[in-house]
Design a binder for these strands. Structure first.
Lengths: 215, 215
DNA sequence: CGACCATTTGATGGGCTTCAAGAGCAGTGG
DNA sequence: CCACTGCTCTTGAAGCCCATCAAATGGTCG
């Protein structure tokens, strides 16, 4: 259960620590005292909570440039490494307001995503979100498992799998194994996701994309 | 379409304005420039967005003491008065960090609520949330319509109505018309909602309850 | 009373879950 | 090298829950 944590706190004063964690590692647990927040440098992180019936709810995925763990004074959700990751750990201090704002923003986007009523719509929206992390036309990595996606979107792994192949069958995406896809019909996919062209820009004023012009 | 706005900006310097709005009034619209945020003094407010297929998503309900409209630089959702309301309008300034934190908090709770998979679970959780705004054993007001609840929980008005009477039939609540209920079996309702006794306290470290001891 | 609205209730069908089994793939050890 | 194991992902079949279509009820206001 304990994990290989290699801490390289040499970088800066002890107000900012860099740490590497292996895939699957826990970063913190629901209920922990929370005094610091994190920034992803490399890899992908998921946050999750459990419902009383035992089923898991993944409340967010976080990529390089994203921040997470701003909850206080206690963790309301746990955080885990989806892939091998490098993180920056920040001390809490006034002025971390932008971090809060970004967290709120991503929470609101996620609420809107969950508002989609059918499985295809939700998954399509999710794929668009992933694709926005990549360049246009590039292959898109799906670092998380089908079960992760399911617990994120409120579906079952089976439905996710079926729906994925369904979207591929419609020639909106092309699958190259379970963990890689490429968008074939961007317009069609966005339409399925219920996202207008204009909105899709708004959806990620993203820190990972160099060209983050928000007008 | 325009609305009776009586503005009583006498209260304080022009950095803090009080305003009264009639039930159904719009407070701001999706896309508007956003420079101020609001605090509810009296009544209930809803925020909402629309999906591409036209269906409505209510992203939150806000009661006396709650804050809303912290999004920037543009409104990502519109806000409307569910009942007659009195609001305080705040200028944006550093130090509104606590407002952000509260907004994030309520967003996360809502995500968790949407994570419930069945209609009964969601509605039960929603009722518990409402009940937490009231004293123990008191009658609980349901200021919003069935359609509002439906668009909030991702259900239809019909399912909400059916499920409501179903929960009443199980003697977990007692209905006194569509807009008032009373909890008969708190333990049973919480269990249905998938909320443990311990958690139910955590769920509302609420500004509306005087006794907000969070340990 | 009659019109209108919100809510309730009934009947049917579809989409997702559930249960079940098979396919693909990496790691291990004989 | 290949059988064996364990895992994730895929696919099939049956059932249930909720959306949809449709209609009735109850309340408010003219």
């Amino acid at each position: 259960m304990t994990l290989p944590v290699r801490e390289t706190d040499s970088r800066l004063a002890n107000s900012l620590q860099s740490l590497d964690l292996a895939k699957g590692s826990s970063i913190y647990f629901e209920g922990d005292r929370a005094t610091r927040w994190y920034e992803v440098v490399r890899g992908v992180v998921r946050t999750c909570r459990f419902h009383a019936d035992g089923h898991r709810q993944l409340t967010g995925f976080f990529y390089a440039g994203d921040v997470f763990g701003v909850d206080e004074p206690r963790r309301t959700e746990s955080a885990e490494a989806v892939t091998d990751v490098t993180l920056l750990r920040h001390e809490r201090e006034p002025g971390s307001e932008t971090a809060l704002r970004r967290a709120l923003d991503s929470a609101q986007r996620f609420i809107f995503l969950l508002g989609h009523r059918t499985a295809v719509e939700r998954l399509a929206a999710f794929l668009v979100m992933i694709a926005n992390r990549h360049g246009v036309g590039e292959d898109c990595a799906v670092p998380m498992s089908r079960a992760d996606i399911a617990d994120h979107l409120g579906l079952t792994m089976h439905t996710v799998s079926r729906t994925m192949t369904d979207i591929a069958r419609r020639k909106l995406i092309a699958l190259d194994g379970p963990q890689v896809f490429r968008i074939v019909d961007p317009e069609g996919l966005r339409e399925l996701a219920g996202i207008s062209e204009a909105e899709s820009v708004l959806l990620h004023p993203s820190p990972t994309k160099p060209d983050g012009a928000l007008k």
